[in-house]
């Protein structure tokens, strides 16, 4: 299968995502410059982490106007799989592809640390390979990852099972202490209504080899590869 990895000026996880899907998982991958107007031919498009356009105004606020975002809208509308990581999640929220916003971390500091993620469901194209019995060890690295949505939106997300990953303790229990940024309901990642667009603050591309401390992030991309191979989104 073929991954497209979008590069905005200021993106920095592009090479990390490329390394993971290409060198670790052996898939085809291309960088997609932000001026591209078509995403045809890709099975999954990744919006990687970074500081698109410096994020001086608000994280993701400028990137959403890039030409590639119109193409992404179309791609997602047609059922294509999209993963927004960190800044990519922020861009997806700014673009209205996902509900809610990512505010500054509650403690107002940037945080780079390991987190445990509880996988809430394993019947999605992003999580079918994730083991339900143990959390994934995946790091965060952000200053604005505090997920917020209006109470009715949150209720809907929960009701429709669209919260995919939640910050938790190593044993899987969800506690305030395990929440690195103050996110509502310890939310680390959500999907859209159709289930083909994932936004998550943690960086699965950083947990790609045991030498780096964890290879759990591979499970998310392996889920996608699986899902595409069986021809469905699930």
């Amino acid at each position: 299968m073929r991954f497209g990895i979008v590069v905005f000026p200021g993106t920095w996880s592009d090479t990390d995502c490329y390394y993971q899907v290409k060198d670790i998982l052996g898939q085809d991958a291309d960088y997609v410059w932000h001026r591209e107007e078509s995403l045809a031919g890709y099975d999954c498009v990744i919006l990687p982490g970074g500081f698109s356009y410096g994020d001086y105004l608000r994280a993701g606020a400028i990137a959403r106007f890039s030409p590639v975002m119109a193409a992404l809208n179309k791609f997602a509308g047609g059922g294509g799989l999209v993963i927004g990581i960190c800044n990519g999640f922020q861009v997806l929220c700014e673009a209205g592809l996902l509900p809610g916003v990512l505010m500054r971390n509650q403690h107002l500091e940037y945080r780079c640390q390991w987190t445990n993620l509880r996988t809430e469901r394993t019947d999605t194209p992003f999580s079918r390979r994730c083991p339900p019995e143990r959390p994934l060890l995946v790091p965060v690295s952000h200053g604005e990852g505090n997920y917020y949505a209006a109470p009715d939106t949150l209720a809907r997300l929960e009701g429709e099972g669209r919260v995919l990953f939640r910050y938790c303790e190593p044993d899987g229990t969800v506690t305030a202490a395990a929440n690195p940024n103050g996110s509502s309901h310890n939310i680390a990642g959500i999907v859209n209504e159709a289930g083909n667009v994932l936004g998550m603050m943690p960086h699965p591309e950083r947990s790609c080899e045991p030498l780096l401390g964890s290879a759990d992030g591979n499970l998310i991309f392996e889920s996608v590869i699986d899902a595409v191979a069986v021809g469905g989104r699930n």
Binding site: T15, D16, Q20, G49, C112, S141, E205, E209, L212
Partner: peptide, 23 residues
């Protein structure tokens, strides 16, 4: 913990030990 010490995915040992190790 306020510094990104993992981007570029080479960090085998990050801050806090005697030396950092990057593959």
């Amino acid at each position: 913990r306020r510094y990104d010490h993992q981007v570029q995915t080479n960090t085998v040992v990050g801050p806090g030990s005697d030396a950092a190790v990057l593959r």
